[in-house]
Structure formats: structure tokens, C-alpha cells
Design a protein around this nucleic acid. Structure first.
Length: 705
DNA sequence: TTTAGGG
DNA sequence: CCCTAAA
């Protein structure tokens, strides 16, 4: 990898806290589905998950008559879930403080990676009945913009229609401080609770940036399609029914909004950077984070019975609410503007994770735990351990029940550019960074799945289809956070923000339910994952990313000297944070592909094709012989040919790598000579016969082709 | 988007 | 493999 352009990866990791989301309404993204919509972590989701937790906790706590401890929050029900379900079991989340944050996800292989980014990890629904899913939610920590006040979220219970409102008061939170104070909230149904009280902020406690949390997710095998999210209702005898319902509901809601959400922060310089759009989300996130972080649940305890089963949240309120919030947020955001530019490298945060398990399957729990511990020490990015769900699954499910467990220590974070004037204060810089980060997290983040360095774009593909199975190395599997590519709405429109907000939020809500899968940042592609070939283009998987990531959000402020990179000034609209698009993008998304040496068989196929097509028609060569090898582009083939010719010309002693049969090298020389002479390119005609003519030229002359 | 080459 | 100029 060349460092030059790839600042991005470095050690960037966010700590993302995840919050388990309940199966939310699954709404489909409607019409506007731009690939983009994908993803962002929505406030809603966060809220929902939060609410759930609160709910459950509250229930549990109430039962136990526990006072809300620092760590525990009582939660009412989530709006999203079916009321009864909610009650069924308390969720516990566990936050592990560990050196690094980790997220572990357990997924059945069959689960498809569909979700838009939105869905991303957070969204996985848990299916209890099937025992399949557990959901853990992750929350990105975002800190709230300095000014943020209180965010209120209302969630309605599908069943009861009981609105729950969670209010967070962060009265004056400085972004710098990023604090969420301990929240003691109790979530009461129908009542509004204030989630966070600003009393003392114990960021430290709540947020230990470093503490890694783990998130464990289990995906049910059953989840394949985008929309199939199973909401597990503990009660529901017939999960499927639930699903369908939920889906429908979901459909009703979302998309439009979603679309709006996408703001490309990065995309254009010109575009206004509007990061802040989701105050609500952030807050929520914060809440979640702070609150739940350290709730330490016991893994085993965890079984979530995800009462949540159904998700039917009425959207209206939420939207409104969110919009409102956002609106404010935006305003704030806009007010702050950045003047000079600097690029800040992304930071790594630790993740706080929660591990939630639901599971009927006991074995898993243990596994999770084990994996978690294992992971903790590890590299920031991703470590994966695999587990198999044992008997738990039913035959009914596809044979592919096996579950894959993922532990995500950190996400690779994209490069972030911000502008700040030289005269700006450090504090303002911090805020700026915070805002930027928050904005990103709030809105434009997508989760990408990288396997063997290659992004898996096809969200519909199941894990096993994508090559993610117990057998494969999960090491090569990684998750990335990427700014949404989608273009942002017109730059700087103050008006827009509100709209966006509104839209977004809804979107968010809906979205999660819809696609259970992990989402890759990129739309789909990989048609065939041929086992061998598929793996990895993308490159640097996690490992590289690993760099140390000292800081968490809270510390985002931390800018290493190296973190700040002066960027040539650009005019642009002064105030806005200017994303430098392409670079950013590239850096983020495009990492150097992993090296995948050509196998002898590939060389053979290449030689064969070139003999027939000539050396100037790489595209044809690609189509003819490598059409399904997604990782081999025509450029790659051309380059390979170039190296083959070179290799063939040098002495065998000088050759490196997997030896290529001399016979093939001879053919390479022969074909190369032939086509060079024939000026090849005559259109096509592949005349094999011709080649033979050339054959004689070969030194070795191999008659047989 | 492909080609063709340099890096 | 990447990056790009050209086409």
C-alpha cells in the first residue's frame, strides 16, 4: 500500500457502539432507492435500540426494584417492537471495557449481506424463535455538537401504540467534552423520560473510548433477502407471519426520507458540508453509548429474547421529532464554519460493544464470549472467530445454519477533511472535528463488508455465497465505515436541512428493518465469487487498518501532528467543510487491492486468450476468459501479460513467485512475437491458426497448443 | 471505458 | 498493482 494517498486507513477506527436494534419496522425503501440510501446510522435506530434497552432494563429493574444504576438504564419499550414482545425479556447489553473495542457478530452463513449500509450491523434483527438472531446494536459514538441540547425521541409501540419518549438533555454539551452524562432514565411507557441528565458527566466512565466493547450479532440463516428480516418475537408462534407484517409496515415508510439523508460530505468541495444533520441521532447515540457502554451484562445472561419481535413503529412522530432536531442541529452546524483547512486523519475510536445474544443456542454464548476475549487484545480492525451454531438450528432452516461469528474491533474510518482558519482556537478545532465526525457518523456512514480485501457489494448474497463461512478465514473479513457516496443535496441550503432531517430520520427508521444484511458500501457486484478468485481485491483488510487508535471520539480532539495535514487552500465557500472528494473517496474506498498472484491455470487461460485475440484486446480477453473473475480486470490481464512476457525473457533463476511452466512462457513469447508482428490488432479475428504459424518462432517451439 | 505505458 | 494520458 502506498501511504501516500491513503491516509485513510491508518489507524482509524471509530469506536462504534453498537446498539442492538430491534427489528424495526421494516420499511422498504421505496422508490428512490439509490444505492446510497444505504446507510447511515440513523438516529432512529439508535433510539429504538436505546429504547428497547431501556425498556427491558426498566422492566427488569423494576422487577428487581433496582435503582437505576449508573450503568443501567431502565428502558421502556421500544416503539418498534411489539409490545408484548418487548416485555418478554430484558435485553442486556454488555459492554466490555477492553483495550480495544470490538464488535462481534455472529451470523449465520446464509444470512445475506443485503442491508444497505443502513442496515449494517445495527440492523440485524434478532429472531428468537428461530433462535437465530440476536441483535446487537452498535452505536457509533458520535458526540453531539457542542450546542446540542436535548434530544427527544419518541417511539411508539407498535402494539400498544404507546409512545415512549426519551429525552436527553445534554443541556450544554460541548462537543469537546462530548459528554453524556450518566443518564438515568427510566423509560416509561407513555411517559417521557429524560434519558440523560446532564448532571455530571462521566464521560470517562460512560465513554471509555478505549474500551472496546463487543458487539455480537447473530444472523439468522433465514435472513436472506433485504427485506426479510425476521423479527423474532419471542412469543410469536409464527414468526413468519410477523415478518410479513412488519415488512409491509416497513414498506410504508421509508425511503424517501432516506434518500435525503445522504449527504455527501465528501463528495464535492463545493458542496456544503452538512454534517450535522442528525442531531437527534447523535444524541441518541451518545446516550446509548454512555449509558450502555458499561452495562456489563453477562454474556450468558444475555439471551435476548428479543421480545421485540415486531416492529411497527408509527413513523410520524419520529419523523417530526427528528426533523426538528436536525433542524436545530443544522443550524448550529452551519453557524460553525470552518475556515482554514486541514485534513484530519480519522481516528480510531474504540468500539463499545455490547454483546447480545439471544439465543436459544447455548453454545454460542460461550463462544461469543470466548471470541470476545480473544479479540480484545487484537488488532484494531477485525478479528473474526467463527463459531458454529450447533444443534440449535433446525433443519428447517437451510442446511447452512452454521453461524459465523465476527468480532469487530474497529472499523476502518475514512479520511476526513476539514477546514479551519489558522486563527481558530484549538477548541474550535476540536469542535469542528467533532462536528465533522458527528456529521459523518450521523449521516453518511455506510458499513462496508470487505472480504479478502475486496468489498462485497452484493448485499443479497448470503454469507456463504460470499465466501464467509466457518471454513474461511474470517481474518480476511472486515467491516468498513465509509462516507456515503450519495451526493448531497444542493450545497448550503439552509432550508434543506430540515427537509433532510425529516426525510432522513424516517428513512433511518425504516431502513434498518428492511435489510438485515450487512451492507457494503458499494452496490452490488461480485457476481460470482469464485472461491479462489474472489477473495480479496480490496486490500488491506483489517490488518492494516489496525493502527493504534488511541482515541475515541471523545478525544477526537486528538490530532496527531500527523493527523493534521495541511491541505492547500481552496476557495470554496468558505465556511463549509469541504470534502475533497475524490481523494477522500479514493482513500477510503480504494485501497490498494490485495495482491492476488495469477495461478498457473489463470496464466494458461490468459495465454490461450491472447493467442487467439491478440495483445490489444484486453477487454475481449477479459470477457472471454475471465468474465467471472471479478478481481481480474482487463488492466490486470494486460499487466499480467506484460509481466509474463518479461518473465519469459528472463532466466528462470530470476523469476520469482509461483513458477510458470516453461511451456506457457514459451507460448507467451510466441504469441507476443506473433501479435507484435501482426500488428495484431486487426480486428479480431482470432485466428488460432495464425498463432501456430508463429509457434515455430518459439525458441522452444511447442507444437501443441 | 479501453488502451497503452510508465511507475 | 496503481495511475493516467489518450483515444
Amino acid at each position: 500500500m502506498k501511504l501516500k494517498k491513503r491516509l485513510d486507513y491508518g489507524p482509524n477506527g471509530f469506536h462504534v457502539t453498537s446498539i442492538p436494534k430491534a427489528p424495526r419496522s421494516i420499511r422498504r425503501r421505496a422508490q428512490h432507492k439509490k444505492a446510497d440510501e444505504e446507510s447511515q446510522i440513523c438516529a432512529f435506530e439508535l433510539l429504538a435500540s436505546l429504547a428497547r434497552k431501556l425498556l427491558q432494563e426498566s422492566e427488569s429493574s423494576s422487577a428487581s426494584s433496582n435503582a437505576s444504576g449508573n450503568d443501567h438504564a431502565t428502558i421502556g419499550k421500544d416503539a418498534v417492537k411489539d409490545g408484548h414482545h418487548c416485555e418478554s425479556k430484558p435485553l442486556k447489553t454488555e459492554c466490555l471495557d477492553q483495550g480495544s473495542s470490538e464488535v462481534s457478530v455472529v451470523v449465520s452463513e446464509s444470512a445475506s449481506l443485503n442491508c444497505d449500509q443502513n442496515c449494517s450491523l445495527n440492523e440485524f434483527p434478532l429472531a428468537e424463535d428461530d433462535g437465530i438472531l440476536e441483535r446487537t446494536s452498535k452505536i457509533m459514538d458520535s458526540t453531539i455538537g457542542g450546542d446540542s441540547k436535548s434530544a427527544i425521541c419518541k417511539i411508539n409501540n407498535a402494539n400498544g401504540n404507546i409512545p415512549c419518549k426519551v429525552e436527553v438533555e445534554g443541556s450544554s454539551l460541548n462537543s469537546e467534552e462530548l459528554c453524556y452524562n450518566g443518564m438515568e432514565d427510566r423509560f416509561e411507557q407513555g411517559l417521557e423520560t429524560k434519558g440523560f441528565e446532564t448532571g455530571d458527566l462521566n464521560m470517562d466512565k460512560t465513554f471509555s473510548s478505549r474500551d472496546p466493547t463487543e458487539l455480537c450479532m447473530t444472523f439468522p440463516a433465514s435472513i436472506n433477502s433485504d427485506r426479510d428480516v425476521k423479527l423474532p418475537s419471542s412469543r410469536d408462534p409464527v414468526p413468519d407471519a410477523c415478518f410479513s407484517r412488519q415488512r409491509d409496515v416497513a414498506l410504508g415508510g421509508r425511503d424517501d426520507d432516506d434518500n435525503l439523508i445522504r449527504i455527501n460530505k465528501f463528495s464535492n468541495k463545493l458542496k456544503v458540508y452538512r454534517p450535522v444533520t442528525r442531531v437527534g441521532d447523535r444524541r441518541i447515540k451518545k446516550l446509548l453509548n454512555s449509558r450502555y457502554w458499561k452495562v456489563a451484562p453477562k454474556l450468558k445472561d444475555f439471551e435476548l429474547s428479543r421480545a421485540d419481535g415486531g416492529i411497527k413503529p408509527p413513523h410520524c412522530k419520529r419523523k417530526t421529532y427528528h426533523n426538528h432536531e436536525r433542524y436545530q442541529h443544522d443550524s448550529l452546524f452551519e453557524k460553525r464554519k470552518l475556515y482554514s483547512r486541514s485534513s484530519v486523519e480519522t481516528f480510531d475510536g474504540g468500539f463499545s460493544s455490547e454483546s447480545v445474544t439471544n439465543s436459544p443456542e447455548k453454545g454460542r454464548k460461550g463462544d461469543k464470549r470466548g471470541s470476545a476475549s480473544m479479540l480484545q487484545g487484537g488488532p484494531s480492525l477485525l478479528a473474526c472467530g467463527m463459531t458454529t451454531s450447533g444443534a440449535g438450528h433446525q433443519a428447517s432452516l437451510h442446511s447452512k445454519d452454521s453461524r459465523v461469528k465476527f468480532s469487530i474491533k474497529s472499523f476502518r474510518v475514512p479520511e476526513i477533511f476539514i477546514e479551519v482558519s489558522e486563527t481558530a482556537t484549538i477548541g474550535s478545532l476540536k469542535r469542528t472535528v467533532m462536528d465533522t465526525v458527528n456529521a459523518i457518523l450521523g449521516g453518511g456512514m455506510h458499513v462496508g463488508v470487505v472480504l479478502h480485501g475486496k468489498k462485497i457489494r452484493d448485499d443479497k448474497r448470503t454469507l456463504s455465497q460470499a465466501g464467509i463461512s466457518l471454513e474461511n478465514n474470517l481474518d480476511s473479513l472486515g467491516f468498513t465505515l465509509e462516507p456515503s457516496t450519495v451526493q448531497a443535496p444542493p450545497p448550503l441550503c439552509s432550508e434543506d436541512p430540515p427537509l433532510l432531517l425529516a426525510c432522513d430520520t424516517p428513512k433511518v427508521l425504516t431502513r434498518s428493518p428492511v435489510t438485515p444484511a450487512l451492507d457494503s458500501g458499494i452496490p452490488n457486484d461480485l457476481p460470482n465469487p469464485s472461491p479462489l478468485t474472489n477473495p480479496g481485491e480490496q486490500v488491506e483488510t483489517n490488518h492494516e487498518a489496525i493502527t493504534s487508535n488511541p482515541d475515541i471520539f471523545t478525544d477526537t480532539t486528538v490530532l496527531d501532528s500527523r493527523a493534521l495535514v495541511p491541505v492547500p487552500a481552496i476557495n470554496a465557500e468558505a465556511l463549509a467543510v469541504v470534502p475533497v472528494n475524490q481523494k477522500i473517496r479514493r482513500s477510503e474506498i480504494a485501497q490498494r487491492r490485495t495482491r492476488r498472484p495469477f495461478s498457473v491455470s489463470e496464466v494458461e487461460a490468459l495465454v490461450q486468450a491472447v493467442e487467439e485475440l491478440g495483445t490489444g484486446r484486453w477487454r475481449d480477453v477479459k470477457l472471454r476468459s475471465f468474465e467471472h473473475a471479478d478481481h481480474r480486470t482487463y488492466v490486470d490481464l494486460k499487466d499480467k501479460w506484460k509481466t509474463l512476457v518479461h518473465t519469459a525473457r528472463i532466466s528462470p533463476q530470476q523469476r520469482r513467485g509461483e513458477p510458470v511452466p516453461q511451456e506457457l512462457l514459451d507460448r507467451v513469447l510466441a504469441a507476443h512475437a506473433y501479435w507484435s508482428q501482426h500488428q495484431a490488432k486487426q480486428q479480431g479475428k482470432h485466428q488460432p491458426g495464425m498463432l501456430k504459424i508463429e509457434a515455430p518462432e518459439n525458441r522452444n517451439g511447442e507444437p501443441g497448443i
